[in-house]
Every structure is written in structure tokens, then in C-alpha cells.
Design a protein around this nucleic acid. Sequence first.
DNA 1: GACGATCCGGAACCTTGTTCCGTATCGTCT
DNA 2: AGACGATACGGAACAAGGTTCCGGATCGTC
Lengths: 202, 202
Amino acid sequence: MTGQGPAASPRRARRSDAQRNEQRLLEAAAAVFVASGVDAPIREIAAEAGVGLGTIYRHFPTRTDLVVAVYGHQVEACAAAGPRLLAEAASPLDALLAWVDRFVDFLITKHGLADALGSDDTGFRQLHAYFLERLVPVCAELLEATERAGQTTPGVDAYELMRGIGNLCIGHESDTRYDPRHMVGLLIRGLRGTAAAPTANP
Amino acid sequence: MTGQGPAASPRRARRSDAQRNEQRLLEAAAAVFVASGVDAPIREIAAEAGVGLGTIYRHFPTRTDLVVAVYGHQVEACAAAGPRLLAEAASPLDALLAWVDRFVDFLITKHGLADALGSDDTGFRQLHAYFLERLVPVCAELLEATERAGQTTPGVDAYELMRGIGNLCIGHESDTRYDPRHMVGLLIRGLRGTAAAPTANP
DNA sequence: GACGATCCGGAACCTTGTTCCGTATCGTCT
DNA sequence: AGACGATACGGAACAAGGTTCCGGATCGTC
């Protein structure tokens, strides 16, 4: 172990133009995602960044890499919010509700993200996987807490719940008659099911 | 009334080869839809039918036309089942449950159909519209009945419910961990909400 | 200043959708 | 039967987007 580099030992540091381009691509991607959605043509992002196609593919081999680079910290923040809410909220159910709200907000706020997660196109499969792998454990924790508190019917799988919520958020743009929040609200209400609130009940 | 043609008076009947080709296309499309999903390349269907690209576009200008031609009668049957169930089932809620079951079965049975309905690709927009226009009224009728019977919380929009159910069915293939029926079940349970069953309850 | 490692740009190729038109076929009329 | 106009056919051609690849420019170091 010579311990000379940040990691193993890339004999040379990254070239400065490479760093610059990565930065430009990140900014361009963020802008294009907002303008045209996360499924915008790669060429459009390359053009916005003033960079060739080869460059974008070298820095971000898959679309997922780009999306994660742009929105990754928000996903992480969402993941981190789970335990925090559980600690701070009045009850596990309140925590779950708040967390789901936050997740839904994130999805429907990012142009085309929900649709992308729902689609099974090549290049979105990995994105799908990333989201689920990152957030399902958090959701599971919240769910277990609500179950233990008797606020939720047991036996609901966190993975399925996350997929369900994500799916419900699909297509909210391009359809003003459909508000995902209504259906997510219904879904969550179904989660409470017959496990009536242990407290008040007229 | 001369009563010579089937309709108004296309001065000539359709050519026999045209009829033959339409038939072939229908059969080919059905086969390809099963094998490769409703989003299979047009060329694949043309090849399967042994016709040129121009021919398929002439007979079925949009993908929707083809899908409706293949699955239309099943959609109609589903639409027709609504009133019948309402008349036959023990309660409006039973009717609604049975009808939703039937709809979900239909969606997850047809390779890629749910995904297609969820996507907002050009050429699937119309399919989406067709399904909703045909089935939302039926769902609305069932929903009103359950509401009147006090088996369902009022204020839920049939259109949103149908979209929600459809969305929940997306991506069930290519993901063995996700069973749409579970989430649809939850959604429907949320529909019943706090409107406790007016009858028996252990 | 030179030289090798790195990185860049975009031409080129693939897949799929869609249009268009020269040509073949059909049905009818003589 | 033969001819002729209406129909229908086939597939070339064009567009859009994804992905690969490599000659050449640039960077960092010696």
C-alpha cells in the first residue's frame, strides 16, 4: 500500500479539460432536463454543453449516470429524510405520510422523471434500479414502524409500495385531469386499511 | 331505397386483395403483439403478414387502429360487463371489485399493453384516449352506485381512478417482485376508506 | 521543446417511424 | 377476351434518436 492517490493509484490525475467538460455537461443536462425532460435527446445535451457526442458518452456512459449525477443528491436527501422524519414526527404514520409526500413531490417536479422510471426502455432500467435500491430500505423502515404501531396493516411489501407510488405519478403532465396525489392518497389510505386508528374514532 | 351497398354508396366495393391483406394483418398483429408486445416494430408486423409497409399504414394509419382492431372487442366486453355486474352482483361494491379485477386481468395479460397506455409516446396517446373514453363512463357508473350504497367514500373521480389502476399495472412484466394486483387491492381498499361497511363486521 | 497519455469531436452506422410514388392488380365495361 | 381506370401494393427514401469508433487535438510531464 503506497497510498499515493485518492483511490488505488491512477498513475495520473484527470486532465483539466476533462473536469471542465464534466462540469459543463452537468449544468447542460440540468438545464435540458428541466426544459425537455429526462428523456431529452443526448444530442441536445451535448449541443447545450458545446461538446461532442463522444464526450458525453465517455463521461456518462448511460443516461442513468447523467440523471443520477444531476438528481442524485436529491435522492440521497430523500433517503436521509426517512429516519429523520421517523424521529421527529408525532407518529410513525405521520412520518410515512410526510415522506411519501416528499417522494411524490420530487417525482412530479422533475419533468418526465416518473415516466422514465415507469418505462422499461433500455437506459432507464438502471435508473429504475437505482431509485428502488436507494429508497426501498428507507420505505421499509417507515413501514415497519407504522406496522409495529398498529397504524398500518401488516404484509405490505415496501418494494411493491414504492413501485406503486412511482407508477401512480406517471403521466401527470400532459393530463391536467389526473393528479397523482389523489391516487397516492387513496393508496396510502388503503394501507391503513382496517387497522383503525388506535386513538380517536367517532 | 336501392339498398345495394352495405353503407351509403361507395361506387365500388373494396378490392378482394385489400380484404385479404387486412385479415392477414390482423392475424399477424395478434401474433406479434403476443410475442413482442403491442409496441413491436411496425416492420415486424408487416413482415409477419408478408405485406409492405405502405399496406399496413393504409389499412391501419396509427398503431391505435391496429391495437383496437385486435383487442377492441375485449374492451367492449369489459365495458359491457359493468352494467351486467351491477345488476347481478350481491352489492355495488362486489360489482366494482369484480369489474376492476377483470380490467386488471385484461391489462396484465396483454404483453406491454399497460406500459403502452402509460407511455405518452405519439401513437399511443390515441390508444390511451380510446381506453379511457370507453371505460371511464362504466367505471363512473359503478362508482356512483357504490357511493350511493355508502360502500365508498364520495368525491373520487372515475377518470383518475381508471388512470391510477392502469398506471399500477405498468411494468409487471420484467419485474417478478411487483404484482399490480396487490397495489390495486390497496387502492380499492383506500376507496372504501372510512366508509365502514354498513352491514356485517366481526 | 518534445513526447506519450488522455481526451475530444463528429462522422458513420443501426433501429424504428412515416411518407410517397411508380407499378401491379382488380373489377368492370365493351 | 381485351382494355381501361380505379385501387391497392411494395419498398425506397427520409427523419430522428442511440451508440460506436477512431483520427487528431490537447494536456501534463520530462
